[in-house]
Design a protein around this nucleic acid. Sequence first.
DNA 1: AATGTGACACAAT
DNA 2: TATTGTGCCACAT
Length: 110
Amino acid sequence: MHKNSFFEDVFEVVRLIPKGKISTYGAIAEYLGTKGAARMVGWALNQCNDTGKENIPAHRVVNRKGLLTGKIHFRGKSMGGLLRADGIQISNNQIMDFENLLWEPRKELL
DNA sequence: AATGTGACACAAT
DNA sequence: TATTGTGCCACAT
């Protein structure tokens, strides 16, 4: 069952984030059973910039405070713009109503 | 095989 | 309350 690498697991979970919702690095790492690998989740998502992984809504993953810490790593379109396209409101790199929009795979995918 | 890295998370100050 | 420092784990080199 561990055929997929950690990165691929991350991609798979991120792909499941519904439009209009967002998740966090820590929540995803925790769901994958490696709670301490939150940083690794971000690094994995960095690979999303590569062609072929454009289906992955990396913009829906933020840190646990709802801050768009990863926006600087986006090439081309801005992270905030993509989130707004999902109907999410942003103010000063902070997702509005963050807690209400949070999608935790640990709960949702159970 | 060992060391370095990183889009985090948390505790201590 | 805001900063700072440390842990953390899987991947890259």
